[in-house]
């Protein structure tokens, strides 16, 4: 591991000033991804700015029934919070489906959004990878790609975003708040990005992952009010019963009245370089009948755009089955 300078900051202006626009500096949150990547040489920062003790560790209600979640809230505290469990149960379930109890106690909301892919070529510095080393190529296209993306990938990168939490945030229209030091005269400036705009398209620049300005610090996430989110679930498919990344996952929310879908939210995990909001499926569902045929048709409306590789085509029926099973379960719960 490269030697590095270390500095702990206690407020946001100090944090963004300390990082500056130094491309060799990184914010350190829980460290569960960054420290691991530093050990393997994927990340080689010269400086760490420790933001773990910033006063961004609260979850507060917003007017109208939404929530503002601070960036240093741990995954554990997020999943345990009564308002999260009551208003956005799929978010609590998604967080609980990720990692282990130890890692959830360490990991933070801001870091979760910025975690890197677990594609084996990215994490192995002896291999080519356009995300880690732009222009070096993507061996996954022809190589090991069973967990590669279905949507939005390119021949330059087929890696998937590993977050569970993000899949629920995508379904619920989360907005990411940040602060930078690039205001007039180097003063702090606040900004925000809808989650839809937060992650950049892959194209030929897979190393550029988010639309955050250089040196920006994520300060929190807002979830707008969403009554349908109270009837939501997260379902994850993985190769072990616990403590493994998804090969496909789903956040689904459903509001049914008199057999008609009044509102629905669907987002897929482990199918793209970002949490994938399934808007085509939502459009197909809303206003139509709440039955299994309609759920399958909605899944197909989204999956029609899927582009498969040699070894990941299994994800298409996997996601279709997830959608049908989860919507059916939500509909049955609503009738109880």
């Amino acid at each position: 591991m490269r030697e590095f300078g270390y500095q702990k900051v206690l407020d946001v202006p100090d944090a963004v000033a300390a990082l500056g626009a130094d491309p060799d500096a990184r914010f350190l949150g829980g460290g569960t991804n960054l420290v691991d990547l530093m050990k393997s040489g994927v990340e080689r920062p010269a400086r760490l700015v420790d933001v773990r003790d910033l006063p961004l560790d609260r979850i507060e209600p917003t007017p109208g029934g939404g929530l503002r979640i601070g960036a240093t809230v741990t995954n554990s505290d997020l999943a345990a919070h009564p308002d999260v469990r009551r208003r956005y149960p799929a978010l609590a379930q998604a967080v609980l489906a990720g990692a282990s109890g130890q890692l959830r106690n360490m990991a933070t909301v801001g870091g979760n959004l910025l975690q890197r892919t677990r594609c084996g070529y990215f994490t192995d510095v002896t291999k080519a990878c356009n995300k880690r080393n732009p222009g070096s190529g993507c061996p996954a296209v022809e190589g090991e790609h069973r967990n590669a993306a279905l949507f939005g990938a390119s021949r330059h990168c087929v890696a998937v975003h590993p977050s569970d939490m993000g899949v629920a945030l995508a379904a619920f229209d989360a907005v990411v708040h940040y602060e930078t030091a690039d205001g007039p005269g180097g003063t702090p400036r606040e900004g925000e990005l809808a989650l839809d705009a937060f992650y950049l398209p892959v194209g030929d620049t897979p190393h550029l992952e988010t639309a955050l300005p250089p040196g920006a610090l994520i300060t929190g996430v807002t979830l707008p009010p969403a009554p349908v989110a109270a009837h939501s679930r997260y379902r994850k498919v993985r190769e072990r019963a616990s403590y493994a990344f998804a090969i496909g996952s789903l956040t689904a929310a459903l509001d049914v009245e008199d057999g008609i879908v009044r509102d629905a939210r669907l987002a897929f995990g482990a199918v793209a370089s970002r949490p994938w909001r399934a808007r085509a499926a939502e459009r197909a569902l809303i206003g139509g009948p709440a039955d299994g045929d309609a759920y399958a048709a909605a899944a197909d409306a989204e999956l029609a755009a899927a582009e498969t590789l040699r070894d990941n085509a299994y994800k298409v029926p996997l996601m279709r089955n997830l959608v049908v099973a989860q919507l059916t379960e939500l509909e049955q719960e609503a009738r109880r």
């Binding site: 270390y6 702990k8 350190l28 460290g31 569960t32 420290v35 691991d36 760490l48 420790d50 773990r52 554990s76 282990s100 109890g101 130890q102 890692l103 106690n105 360490m106």
Partner: peptide
């Protein structure tokens, strides 16, 4: 998980926790 300790009462993997932090 072999390196699990409690930090401020919460279980943590000490291999990903920098000592300085």
């Amino acid at each position: 998980g072999a390196c699990t300790v409690l930090v401020d009462g919460r279980r943590t993997v000490s291999c990903l926790q920098l000592a300085v932090a």
